[in-house]
């Protein structure tokens, strides 16, 4: 992984201060279709018992908010894809999507 997240500047020092640009990204990881999701099922049951009718299916997942140094969105996207493939998602069971701010 080329991007050193721990070196990312603090929030207040982002894009317009000191000429440092930061790209904010959100990575969403969800279970693939066909993979059993016992946690989603339990949440679905709990929603039903709270009286929320008509909840067909609940699938739970993870969200990662990242700040990356730089202004090159194409590079950031490529780096994020590599991060997902190597660590953030287990592609045996999970899909991921990347959204840049």
């Amino acid at each position: 992984m080329k991007t050193n997240l721990s070196a990312a500047p603090a929030r207040f020092s982002s894009s317009n201060i000191g000429g440092i640009s930061v790209i904010k990204a959100r990575v969403t990881v969800t279970l693939k279709n066909g993979v059993l999701d016992p946690q989603g099922k339990a949440i679905e049951g709990a929603l039903g018992s709270l009286g929320f009718a008509g909840v067909g299916q609940v699938r739970q997942g993870k969200v990662f908010d990242l700040e990356l140094d730089g202004a090159d969105k194409a590079k950031a996207e490529a780096d994020l894809k590599a991060m997902c493939e190597k660590l953030l998602a287990n592609t045996v069971i999970e899909n991921y999507s990347i959204a840049l701010d």
Binding site: V35, L36, P38, Q39, A42, N90, V92, I93
Partner: peptide, 17 residues
């Protein structure tokens, strides 16, 4: 071992939670 790709598959939360 499965996370390292040395064995196939994945180990998920127990169905009983």
């Amino acid at each position: 071992l499965v996370e390292a790709g040395m064995l196939p598959g994945a180990l998920m939360r127990n169905s009983s939670l």
